[in-house]
Design a protein around this nucleic acid. Structure first.
Lengths: 144, 144
DNA sequence: TTGAATGCAAAACCTTTGCAAGCTC
DNA sequence: GAGCTTGCAAAGGTTTTGCATTCAA
């Protein structure tokens, strides 16, 4: 619960910085995202609203996800399709993905050392970090 | 020239593994890619052929790039659009990208330590490495 | 009150695909 | 000759956009 609120503050803070509003729809999208533990995309999230009888539009979802991404509440996930996948950052903590290009299997990995060096790169170039996309592609053992 | 041939061998080797053919078109695409030092995408490469009066089709380019990618001759590059960008691996050696989400500026960085840990992840999960996509998104100093 | 957000529908976009004809090996 | 490759054209599928209306601060 503590984490949940802190996440919400991050989202609100981003909106404030951008002089954007914390509307009913954005709140609903934020809340729905917090209920998800797996990966999702704009469309699957929209479908959830539709199934619940909510009138939140697909476009609103498409427009809100980049804001959640930038605020750090969600992060990019992985998949073989061109589609963009996301997942809640706090669900399992931050991690990256290893993708088998043959069977599409996706493995989550955590590598704190990589995170450390990433942070160094950001600071070396005087960038304020927002997020990153790190996917390793290869062929898994069973596909070889 | 030595490097050039070695690259070509890598490409040929991949084709052989997949029982694919080293056709005239694939050779032409390989050669054209070797002439490029900056980043490109399927379409811009196709345009180059068109401007040269070559009859190589857009589709062939689209179908060949994944093969060059898998053989390691090219790697993914970065951009803000959904479009896929590539660049020759040997042009500047392997590197990754730092992208400013405000102005779109792209900075290339090299971080050998990250590469080392990536290799560890691949071997830990028994994956045969093919390539990776590593982009750091943030806000550059002048945009803040 | 003012600027932002939303829904609708349409557009835009890049990429992929099926198929018949032509090449490679 | 068998199977892969290519060009054509069309489809595909996701994401974006313009605009009028509604809403938040």
């Amino acid at each position: 619960m503590a984490i949940k609120s802190r996440e919400e503050e991050k989202f609100k803070a981003l909106l404030k910085t951008r002089r954007l509003k914390y509307t009913v729809d954005r709140k609903a999208i934020y809340r729905e995202v917090m209920r998800l533990s797996g990966h999702f995309n704009a469309d699957s999230l929209y479908e959830r609203f539709k199934n619940q009888g909510s009138r939140i539009g697909r476009d609103t979802v498409y427009r809100t996800l980049p804001l959640l991404l930038e605020s750090g509440v969600i992060q990019k996930s992985a998949g073989l399709s061109k589609r963009e996948f996301f997942e809640r950052t706090s669900a399992k903590g931050h991690h990256d993905h290893l993708v088998c290009v043959r069977c599409g299997k996706i493995i989550e990995f955590k590598c704190p050392e990589i995170e450390t060096f990433q942070a160094k790169v950001f600071s070396e170039y005087l960038f304020q970090p927002i997020c990153h996309d790190h996917r390793l592609f290869g062929i898994c053992r069973s596909c070889r």
